[in-house]
């Protein structure tokens, strides 16, 4: 069974009577443990695709299955639970809660899963240690570098032990050194834990870390190559 299975996904935005076809029929399968990069110029529909794959949004048409479950039949609450259990997100701009410690930030997904506090914090601590931030537990986002903040975000994506990690331009706000550190962590997560990673980027050097490159242009898949 595939981790993610998209068949002919279409997403059309309507804004003030103008409609934008962000995705025009994307068919794509991501297997468990895979490491894929979605490549394409800005505005090609990469983020839209990632939001659909992550069940943050619903397609205008087409079918999406997550872990074999057809998403269209799920309520918003069921979708929220599906996200919580099977998908981890990493965003370009980190999206950490300000004035909240790294530990609490990382523990947040477990709050919505109803995990007791002590267990939550223990798992958050372990996740932070696995990204090399065992010494930054009580730091707030404003007290950390961009690279550290993104690693906190990765720890947060990991803490719920998802099957798929979706990363939208995770290195976009980082310098080269921090960027490659983040890529090193994502690679080792994929290799050691077997988490499927779907990485969105417009930089070929970053995409080169993945074994599979999916090229998107104007809302369509242009090429899908494995190295």
């Amino acid at each position: 069974m595939s981790a993610l299975e998209a068949v002919d996904l279409v997403r059309t935005y309507r804004l003030d009577g103008v409609s934008v076809d962000a995705l025009r029929g994307v068919t794509l399968t991501v297997e468990p443990g895979e490491f894929a990069a979605i490549l394409g110029p800005s505005g090609s529909g990469k983020s839209t695709l990632m939001h659909l794959l992550g069940c943050l949004d619903r397609p205008t048409s087409g079918v999406l299955r997550v872990g074999g479950v057809e998403v269209a039949g799920l309520s918003d609450a069921e979708l929220a639970e599906l996200r919580n259990r099977t998908i981890g997100f990493v965003f370009q701009s980190f999206h950490l809660l300000a004035r909240t410690s790294a530990l609490e930030n990382v523990a947040l997904p477990l709050v919505y899963r109803g995990v007791p506090r002590a267990e939550r914090l223990a798992r958050a601590r372990a996740a932070l240690e696995s990204v090399g931030l065992g010494h930054r537990l009580d730091h707030r986002p404003s007290q950390m570098s961009g690279g550290e903040q993104q690693r906190v975000a990765i720890a947060r994506a990991l803490v719920g032990e998802p099957e798929v990690l979706l990363a939208d331009e995770p290195t976009g706000n980082l310098d080269t050194r921090n960027g490659s550190e983040v890529m090193r962590i994502l690679t080792s997560l994929n290799e050691e834990r077997g988490v499927a990673v779907v990485l969105v980027t417009h930089e070929p050097e970053i995409a080169a870390h993945a074994r599979r490159q999916i090229h998107v242009r104007d809302g369509l898949i242009e090429a899908d190559t494995r190295s």
Binding site: G54, L56, D76, A77, A80, E81, R83, N84, R85, F89, H95, L97, L108, P109, Y112, R113, R156, G160
Partner: peptide, 10 residues
Amino acid sequence: GLRKALGARQ
């Protein structure tokens, strides 16, 4: 938005 992405329901 973040809370919802992480699994918060409406």
